[in-house]
């Protein structure tokens, strides 16, 4: 049944592709609550905190080389992200798509956008309002691991759901 539900969710993704024209929120007022630079907000033991979202729910999914399809593990993480976002409607999110360094700059930007969009569509299919979810691609510009080995590349091929405070903060 779970598999069937996922299949249904994926189908819903494709059906929703055409209507993802989200209303936009103002970038300048959004505050990154779980980005590496700003540190975590709240206590990881508080299930409603961004820290909990990042550490327990899991804020990122990883991709195979040149792929933007979501593995089963990815889908489990995104189910949990969707549930968290549904339970905490004050938060918006920007999904950041990234690529490893093995590729040309422009292609990696486009690939990162595919990855971010795959996550966004999954979350929307699970009921998260499209207007709460933005996407951006950093291509190969923002690696988190810096070696030139697959051990690093695998962590860099990622889409990270970065929370931001909604209108109420």
């Amino acid at each position: 049944m779970i598999t069937l539900a996922r299949t249904a969710a994926l189908c819903a993704c494709f059906a929703l592709t055409a209507c993802t024209n989200a209303n936009r929120f103002d970038d300048t007022n959004a505050v990154d609550l779980n980005s590496a630079q700003t540190g975590l907000a709240g206590s990881p033991s508080d299930p409603a905190s961004p820290a909990y979202f990042q550490q327990t729910v899991g804020d990122r999914v990883l991709f195979a080389v040149d792929e933007s399809t979501l593995s089963r593990n990815n889908q489990l993480v995104l189910e949990a992200q969707a549930n968290w976002l549904l339970a905490n409607p004050d938060y918006f999110a920007t999904i950041e798509g990234h690529a490893d360094e093995q590729g040309t700059r422009e292609y990696n930007l486009a690939l990162g956008a595919r990855r971010a969009n795959a996550v966004r569509e999954y979350l929307v299919a699970r009921g998260v309002a499209g207007g709460r979810l933005e996407t951006v691609s950093f291509g190969k510009e923002r690696p988190i691991e810096i070696c030139s080995e697959e051990a690093c590349y695998t962590k860099n091929r990622r889409a990270v759901t970065v929370l931001s405070a909604g209108a109420q903060g």
């Binding site: 592709t17 993802t20 933007s68 422009e106 930007l109 486009a110 956008a113 595919r114 971010a116 969009n117 795959a118 966004r120 569509e121 996407t135 691609s137």
Partner: peptide, 9 residues
Amino acid sequence: FSLTEGGNT
């Protein structure tokens, strides 16, 4: 130029 919309470039 390239423009990406809905993940498609």
